[in-house]
Simulated assay, not measured.
Amino acid sequence: MDDILKRLLDAELRAERLAQEAETEQERVIQEALALGKAQDEQLTLRIPELRRSYIAKAEERAEQVIAELRRRYDERHVQLREQAEQHEQAGLDAAFQVLIELDHAPQSR
């Protein structure tokens, strides 16, 4: 009977020691995870200005592309309007002269 009690006591002590080791390991893992999370948070905080600069640079690049495209369209439209104006210039002058001639030949009332 003493032998059985001794073995049970030894088993209980081993179980307590294993439980204590598991708790110690759990605490170590938790502290390691917290430290890793803090380090990653600090890295992200340090990268925020770099990320902001990158975002702004990309936004400026896109804005410049849009501006260039709008200028190209504006220039194309300007050329089209200039060509249309030149095409209709003679007809406009002819119509204006016709009106002046008709006014000159119209009977004047007194």
Rank of each mutant, 00 (worst) to 15 (best):
I48K: 08
K38M: 11
Q26C: 06
E86F: 02
L36A: 13
Q84C: 05
D41A: 12
V29A: 09
T45Y: 06
Q31I: 09
L36H: 08
L70W: 05
S54I: 04
A59W: 00
P49L: 03
D41S: 07
R47N: 14
H88T: 00
E89S: 05
D10Q: 11
P107W: 05
I101G: 05
A106I: 00
E89C: 11
Q108K: 12
R62G: 14
A91P: 01
A85C: 06
E76R: 08
G92Q: 06
Q108M: 12
Q84K: 04
D94L: 10
R28L: 13
L8N: 09
L13Q: 13
A96E: 09
S54E: 11
Q65R: 14
Q87T: 06
V66K: 05
E12S: 15
A96F: 09
G37D: 05
V79H: 07
Q31T: 04
A57W: 02
I4P: 00
P49R: 00
S109H: 09
R47L: 10
L36M: 04
A35E: 10
Q20P: 06
A19Y: 05
E21Y: 02
R71V: 14
Y74E: 15
R71G: 15
Q31A: 14
E50V: 13
L13A: 14
A91N: 01
R82M: 06
R52S: 14
E64V: 13
A22G: 03
L5H: 03
E61A: 15
E69H: 04
H78Q: 13
L93V: 07
R110I: 06
I56C: 05
I101L: 11
E69G: 12
R82Y: 00
I48N: 03
L9V: 05
R110E: 12
Y74F: 13
R71K: 15
V29Y: 09
D2Q: 07
D75N: 13
G37Q: 06
T24E: 08
E50D: 13
L93F: 01
E32G: 00
R28Y: 11
L9Q: 09
E25V: 02
L93W: 01
R82P: 08
D10T: 06
E23W: 01
E60F: 03
A96W: 11
R28E: 07
A96N: 01
